[in-house]
Design a protein around this nucleic acid. Sequence first.
DNA 1: GCCAACGTTGGC
DNA 2: GCCAACGTTGGC
Length: 136
Amino acid sequence: MPYWLLKTEPETFSWQDQLARGTNGECWDGVRNHQAAKHLRQMQLGDQALFYHTGKDKSIQGIVTVIKTAFPDPSDATGRFVAVQVQAVKPLPRPVTLAQIKAETTLADCLLVRQSRLSVMPITTSQWRTILRLAA
DNA sequence: GCCAACGTTGGC
DNA sequence: GCCAACGTTGGC
């Protein structure tokens, strides 16, 4: 089962907002980058993703799961980009900061570090485990 | 507030 | 098809 990481500006849509959506989940739209869109298309039902706050927080807050696979992004008039639907699974016991991730040598290859502008990215199983360990 | 990285646009 | 100019993202 593949793992992912989704970025969001907490001022726009935060982990608290995602939690408040409950089992309705949230439509993850507005992605306008082809590489990120490619990842959205690869997501399967039940895949899990880390929920990352950019900006002041710069930390992973929780875990979400894909409840609807890629469909045309309702906010995209051109019809070229896609969205998915995600639902909160649980908060991390402790948020994992970008500084922690950068300090972890085994996470040096993580796309969060390597390609800071990418907003939707895959996470390897070992990276996933490492991050959850940091959150414990 | 600055800047590096990167995507997009438009002239040639 | 190349590349300079410009806009955006996101960390510092």
